[in-house]
Design a protein around this nucleic acid. Structure first.
Lengths: 327, 327
DNA sequence: ATCTTTTACTAAACCGGTTAGATGACAAAG
DNA sequence: CTTTGTCATCTAACCGGTTTAGTAAAAGAT
């Protein structure tokens, strides 16, 4: 039988209350005598007492658990942040529940409500839609990676538009005149900003925007769609030589496509991609990438969430800069 | 104010008990009249009642939460399994708490105890030591990837020794006579089995085992150590031409090393590695890899855990076969 | 010597559910 | 006409903590 406060109370000959005070380090404050404190601590130790976290949470209303909800935890970008969020949260005595939404708003909603009913203290979320904030009502929430509205605060992201602009310019500066954009069909604010940055760079460099060079990939069928998109682009009479991929998964699949189907073109093309991957270091075509500061994103997200949990009011959104790795 | 059973009871003019029965679908069984049931359901719906999961868990002793504990959730192998475990668990109404141990037994112990105090129903664990089972005592536990003892049951792994044997033989069949082994210095049963398979293959093919071709990598410094190991090996007077890497992270770093420091050798070497990575499809040196069946590992782990949660006795361990992808 | 404060500790309510056992009403059986 | 059984519902205890509002005794102040 697992010992409870009651067990200790009986064995130490005091009340539950006293035991609770002492074990929570409030012994002095509550004027519990040194001898009694000693006896209680000794008993607790002897019985190897471990408090029941659920019971505590139920009465305090704090579960010391946060949620980490992203489209796909197996995506290396989110996996890395998960690891870091978990580490920071643990330092603060929090555990982390994770869930993947598959980029589906309905599933996201279900997950958030399930977590809320589990009395989670707050959620770090990479939202798939602008609706999510509604379902969480009063639960502390920090959105990262995708920011649907800056107004509510509590957001962490990067300078998407500027980064896309710079990535595109790098390709232009390397002499590429026709630059394809491999984007996503679902509406996400970070993606929208990146598209803008791409357009802006073309405009500034007096390259006209050819709509045929822009391909939208369906999230659910990305692997198949990227192969099709790249193949179509390379089959054009005037094919692009520079490619901007709006995230690492798309770029990885793009590299795969070239290597499997167009290996002879690997040297003549140049890629640019959001997010870094280790493989970009040696992949062909060469990939210039924009590294997002995972550590800072994770740390800031947790910090912001803790702030809201403690103080119940939002902090201003934070926007980090990416680091462009030229290859 | 969030509505509770009490709120509904008051508004519907019945007792908490009756509400509890009805909302748990035990209305018929408990002979609650149709009219009362209707009224209760209507009230619950009107107030948008959501049960407090903590309170329920406290009284039933079931939290419908499981833990997923691995060395590093950002490792793609574990990330993929995490995603799948999460999906299967969700289907069964469970949430998942994740934690990374950093391959440290002490941290693993802390995590397991913290989870236990959170009244988790069970844990899916990739253990870093043989000790973990002790700290979980009566908590349902399934170990995957690393199996320290088959005797206790509840284990899921793959045919490590045979796979290593086959991978090594592939290298031999491709004409490589000197085959390096990039291993890990920490003792893990899966790694030990893989080393055995390597030795067995050399022996069977009458190649003598050159200890200098075996390099142990320190988990904490893998990136640095792999570069050093590969560089040393290639600097030998009679350097190896085949390399067996005991996991995907090591192999990825090996590929990086060749591409950065020895690009002229990329074509003459051949790698073999445990676990698949997308980048193996186009990386040079070519990589023959052993794909582990993530879906089946995840599904079986969850199934096994659920079995133990329900029936409180262990199932026999399961061992899956890998799929070798020749490149 | 009496009043006030401090010390050391406890009883009981509470968090929000679940559940064993009781209860009163009514119908069928003996 | 009592007994037994079923129906419909409720009371109260319980899960294991936290916390408010005490209380009795000892110490300090007037």
């Amino acid at each position: 039988m697992k010992p409870s406060l009651k067990t200790i109370a009986e064995q130490a000959g005091v009340s539950k209350t006293t035991v609770s005070f002492v074990l929570n380090g409030r012994g002095e404050e509550k004027h519990i005598s040194t001898e009694t404190q000693r006896r209680i601590l000794e008993t607790a130790h002897r019985l190897n007492y471990q408090p029941n976290h659920l019971a505590r949470s139920l009465s305090t209303g704090r579960s010391y658990t946060i949620g980490f909800v992203v489209p796909d935890i197996s995506n290396p970008f989110f996996g890395k942040i998960a690891r870091l969020v978990e580490a920071y949260a643990e330092e603060l005595g929090y555990s982390v529940m994770v869930a993947s939404t598959g980029e589906r708003a309905d599933k996201e909603r279900m997950i958030l409500e399930a977590f809320k009913n589990r009395q989670i203290d707050g959620v770090v979320l990479a939202p798939s839609s602008g609706e999510s904030i509604k379902y969480t009502s009063d639960m502390p929430l920090v959105c990262f990676d995708r920011v649907f509205s800056k107004e509510t605060g509590n957001t962490v992201d990067v300078n998407n538009q500027e980064t896309a602009f710079l990535l595109t310019e790098r390709l232009i500066n390397k002499g590429h005149r026709r630059i394809a954009l491999i984007s996503l069909s679902s509406f996400l604010p970070n993606i929208a900003a990146r598209i803008k940055g791409y357009q802006e760079a073309l405009e500034k460099n007096n390259l006209n925007l050819d709509e045929r060079l822009i391909k939208d990939i369906d999230e659910k069928e990305k692997n198949r769609d990227v192969v099709a998109a790249v193949s179509e682009l390379l089959a054009m009479e005037e094919p692009p030589t520079g490619f901007l991929f709006l995230n690492n998964v798309l770029a990885a699949q793009g590299i795969w496509t070239i290597n499997q189907l167009f290996p002879h073109l690997a040297d003549s093309l140049h890629f640019a991609s959001f997010d870094n991957l280790d493989l970009f270091d040696f992949a062909l075509p060469k990939v210039t990438s924009a590294l997002q500061p995972s550590e800072r994103i994770a740390q800031e997200s947790v910090k912001m969430l803790m702030h809201q949990i403690e103080h119940r009011h939002a902090m201003n959104g934070v926007c980090f800069s990416t680091t462009i790795i030229d290859r």
